[in-house]
Write a protein that binds this DNA or RNA. Structure first.
Lengths: 213, 213
DNA sequence: AGCTCATGTTAATGGGGTTTACATGACTTG
DNA sequence: CAAGTCATGTAAACCCCATTAACATGAGCT
C-alpha cells in the first residue's frame, strides 16, 4: 500500500512518509540512539539535507514517530479493552497483555514513545496523543472500580498509574528486543497477568463476579 | 575534593577514575545519549584518544559506570532493608522508597544501569553486580513471604520481579530529571508506597502483624 | 509562456568515534 | 647509573553525522 516511486511524485512525492517509515525501521534495528537523520535520508534515496524540508531537526522527526506510536498504542488498547466486554475484569487483563504485545511487536514505536528522551512538550499533538492513550487505561480503571461497593473505592487515577507503571516496567525490563533485555523464567505476559491479578485482589476486585450466573 | 592535576600523576595519574567521574557528570547533565567520549576526555584535560588506553570503547566505559551504579544501588537497597528491621513489612516499604530515591539522586547511575542500552552480557562483572542488586530485593521478598502461613505462599521470585518492575516503571516514567518526565499529581514515593500496600494486600500480607504485642 | 514556491541538491562548517604512528617518562635491570 | 621496556598520552588522519546556506528544479497557477 506504499510506494517509494509515486507517479504523481515529482521530486519525491511523499518524502515525509518515507522518512517516517525509514526512521521506524532504523529505530527498530538499532535503537532510538542509533537512528541517524542521514541514514534515514539515505534509505529514502535523498540527500542528507532533504529531511530538513520536512522536519526542523532530528528530534522533531522522533517526536512525530512517537506521536504516531501513541495513536497506534491508544488504538491497540482500545481494541483490547473492547468497552469492557464481556466483563471488565477479563477485559482489563486483556489490556495488560495488549500493552506488552504492543511493546514487543512495535519496539520502534515503543522506543520513540518512552525511551527516546523526547519531551512531551516538544509537540502539543504529541501530548494529546499520549494523554489519549493513558485515558484508555484510566477509563478502564474507572469501569473496574465502579464494580466495587461505593464505599471505599480507591481512586481510579492511582490505579491507572499503578498499572501503567507496572506494564511499562515489565515492558522495559523484559520485553526489549535487544541484548539489554533481562532474562525471565516466564513469559512477560504471564508475569503481567499475575501482577494484575494480585494488584486487583489487593484493591478488593475479584475475578469472578458474574451478576447473572 | 577532586583535582585534575594530581602531583603524584605524571602523565595523568588516574585517568580512568577521572574519566568515570566525568562520564557520571556528563550523563547526569545530558543523559546517557548525550554523553560523548571526547567530552569526557576534554573534562579530564586529555586528548580525545587517551580514553582508549583505559576503555575499549565508549560502551565499555558506560558498562563500567553501570557496574558501579549497581554496586551503589545494592548498597542503598541493603541499607534500606536493614535486614528487615524492625519488621519486614515497613522495611520492605523502605526498600521501595530507597529504589526511587536512588533513581532520583543518582540519575546518571540509573541511566547507565537501565537506559543506556548496555547489554548485561557486556561484562561478567556487570551481570554479577546487577544480580547482586536484584538479590537484595528477592531476599526481602522471601522474608516477607515467610510471614505468611506455609500453605499457599506465592513465589518470592515473582513477587520480587513485580516489585522491581513497578519500581522501575515509576522511576522511569515519573522520576526523570529531564523534560521527558511525565507529570504526576503526587510524589512518586507516595505512588510507590500505595502500590506496594495494595500489592502486598493482594498477596495476603497485612501491614500490622506484631507477633509479640 | 512565465512566475513562484515547495522541494531537493551541493558544499561547507563543526563535532564525535576510532585507529595508527609516534612521543614521553616511570620503572626495571644489568 | 645507563639503557631498555612498557604503560600512558598525543597528533594526525579517516569517516560519519548534524546542520546551514546557496543554488537548482519543476509543479501548478496566472
Amino acid at each position: 500500500m506504499s510506494w517509494s516511486k509515486d507517479p504523481r511524485g515529482y521530486h519525491h512525492g511523499n518524502l515525509k512518509e518515507a522518512l517516517l517509515r525509514a526512521a521506524l525501521d532504523l529505530i527498530a534495528q538499532k535503537g532510538p540512539a542509533g537512528f541517524t537523520f542521514a541514514e534515514a535520508a539515505r534509505a529514502a534515496g535523498v540527500s542528507p539535507a532533504a529531511p530538513y524540508r520536512h522536519f526542523r531537526d532530528r528530534e522533531e522527526l522522533m517526536a512525530n514517530v512517537a506521536r504516531r506510536g501513541f495513536e497506534a498504542f491508544a488504538q491497540a488498547l482500545t481494541r483490547a479493552w473492547d468497552d469492557g466486554r464481556p466483563e471488565p475484569f477479563s477485559a482489563f487483563e486483556r489490556v495488560g497483555r495488549a500493552y506488552l504485545t504492543f511493546a514487543r511487536s512495535e519496539p520502534a514505536f515503543y522506543s520513540a514513545m518512552f525511551e527516546s528522551g523526547v519531551p512531551m512538550e516538544a509537540d502539543p499533538e504529541l501530548r494529546v496523543a499520549g494523554d489519549a492513550a493513558f485515558a484508555v487505561l484510566r477509563a478502564a480503571a474507572e469501569r473496574l472500580i465502579a464494580t466495587l461497593p461505593a464505599a471505599g473505592r480507591p481512586p481510579a487515577l492511582m490505579m491507572a498509574l499503578h498499572v501503567w507503571a507496572m506494564a511499562h516496567g515489565i515492558a522495559s525490563l523484559f520485553c526489549r528486543g535487544d541484548a539489554a533485555r533481562r532474562s525471565l523464567p516466564m513469559p512477560p505476559e504471564d508475569l503481567m497477568e499475575a501482577a494484575i491479578l494480585v494488584y486487583l485482589r489487593g484493591l478488593g476486585i475479584d475475578p469472578v463476579r458474574p451478576s447473572s450466573p
